[in-house]
Design a protein around this nucleic acid. Structure first.
Lengths: 201, 201, 201, 201
DNA sequence: TGTTAAGCGAGACGGTACGTCCTGTCTTAAC
DNA sequence: GTTAAGACAGGACGTACCGTCTCGCTTAACA
């Protein structure tokens, strides 16, 4: 299989400069005030070069964030699997809490969320290329736990993934409270043990 | 003690026309393409009348959605309390699922979410006037269940509210799946019973 | 004959403040940037008070300049008549040159000229109440000279007044050169003696 | 030596459309109600295209009138020189009278006068590019008459030009009377012969 | 190994919307 | 019944960007 012949002349330097500029600009001014004109100026690039390769500022931002997060590969890392489901999920949830609390991550990710809310095509691409692979990694860990008899075989895996991970995402999105390891632990205890027997009883 | 004398001259007709116009326009074109110019034109109002009373298009939208949802009162309805916690939460979650699936609600709410992501002041107002009262109503129902011995006294109520309601909100926001009563039920079973014993075991 | 009964309640203080404000504002910002709003604010007066009594900002300016120049009387002073036509005209022309060179006069008068160019009704009022009386005073002096045999009886008096006074006005208007006594004298020599024998021949 | 490379990309079609639109609009609504917005709309052009190349609506108007009057050349036509000064001046003055009486000329010229009164920079440009070249043409004719012994060598040429031409300009500006050939002739007789011996004696 | 077409930076173009200022009309409360 | 105050519908201001469109220049691929 050969390299795609399309886009033969595309300037790698310009592409990198554009993504770099978009990423930093969005961190400075937010999605609403991000403009293609400013990206082009910051990147030292003609506007047409952006319009030639991306359909919208949201698409530029998506790629900028995506490249930062995944580099050149499309596949997310699998979740840790030590055999201890609770410990592994705790590790992941705590790491997520820390990452989302980092302004370097928070601002572009928030901007990307806006972009996706404004542009359904972008949202679709996100679901395909980010959300679904990530979710599959989470499902895989839960499946492993099912095989180990730690979770019921009949479990609705998607609902389970939502139950474990959505509360943190929602708190982050609406800044509804601090993203701490304590919060991560409290959530995990509820989700794994159930509200009815939650708490250190 | 008298009513505040300020803003005495404000035109109630113009205010209503503006909120009405904003609500419908945002449903037609989305938040990004909503313009104050268009709101003013649709409402038959001078732009200055909008700028005089609201600091941004997001603030107009917030008030438009708020008035639609709460009318003149500030207080959300309390959750049902029949004594059966699971049944009551099921009622609420199912109703939420149906409501979020309604385009008349979906579109303005999605737009409002964008507005809040773009404008922290607006997000703060939302948390104070919408999120926190609503959350308190939810907490109150859980406290009632604690008093009835259905939930542990040591439960972290905010984490519990998140665990119950966030997954649905997240699925709605990212259109990650259908908002059905089945999904509501599956979530509730996990959250109340815990993943480890979830499913019809 | 009594004071006119119309405008019974009109506030003399407000009228004076408005004219004062208009006069000074126009000197600061020029006619184009003069606004009724600014006049009202400077005069400490409601906008409606201006709109009630004057039809346009030009009319306010006209009255402001007019009151400054003529006070309460409508009649301009007659030209000096010592019997020596040339000396009398020299006196008047030199005085005109000095007055037009004074910024306190120059700026409002220039503004008034703009107002009249923009508003034919105002121009008509100016011609009736300022230009024509002034011109009649000039004609009167020339008539006196005719009676004294210093000017031909057949002279077209209006053309003569134009010939004597227009060049100075034009130079002032277009800032085409300095308004000096020398210029006044040079003009007078040409106009009285004729170009063909002008100069100290 | 090459033509200046700057402004390379300027659209000649847009420039022409703008000047055309400005010229006609000012004739319809006058200078005060002339708006850049309306010029742009009439010309089928973006506002920015006007702001890019002209600093003010006055500058647009100046160029519009200038192009109409002079086309691409900067130089005014010389005055006729048949050897008979009086006849030549009569020709010019009569032509001026007729031209100023033409509404097609009157309205834009009056507007341009307002523009210059409001904007000293514009007035300066007018003096440099229009008034001074025109005046030089007039001076040249008078110099020719001096060489022919028809005028004193000591004559102040600028004052003489003013004396000949200003009265007509002033009457036009203030609509102080009809601009007829008779008026032109009367002025010329006074200016050349002198008031003291004016009239058909 | 020179030709040629693509991608490139630059930026003008016709537009839309911004947020501000002012217009002329109106309504209210105070005197 | 006039006044100061100021809200109102409307419209123009001058600016910022939109997405499209040339313009010359650079550069890699093919001839």
């Amino acid at each position: 299989m050969s390299k795609e012949p399309m886009a033969a002349r595309r300037s790698a330097a310009s592409r990198a400069a554009i993504l770099e500029a978009a990423f930093h600009l969005v961190g400075e001014v937010g999605y609403g005030k991000l403009s293609i004109e400013a990206i082009a100026a910051r990147a030292g690039v003609g506007k047409q070069t952006i319009y030639r390769w991306w359909p919208s500022k949201g698409a530029v931002l998506f790629e900028a964030v995506f490249v930062r997060s995944f580099g050149d590969t499309e596949n997310p890392a699998p979740l840790p699997d030590t055999g201890d489901l609770e410990a592994d999920l705790r590790t992941v949830l705590r790491a997520t809490a820390l990452e989302l609390a980092d302004p370097e991550v928070d601002r572009p990710l928030r901007a990307l969320t806006v972009a996706m809310l404004e542009d359904e095509a972008l949202a679709r691409e996100y679901r395909t290329r980010v959300e679904e692979p990530t979710r599959e990694a989470k499902r895989a860990r839960l499946r492993s736990a099912q095989r180990a008899g730690q979770l019921p075989a009949s479990l609705d895996l998607d609902a389970a993934v939502d139950a474990i991970f959505a509360p943190m995402a929602q708190r982050w999105l609406h800044r509804a409270g601090p993203l701490t390891e304590e919060y991560a632990d409290a959530l995990l205890e509820i989700t794994l043990g159930g509200l009815r027997r939650s708490g250190p009883n």
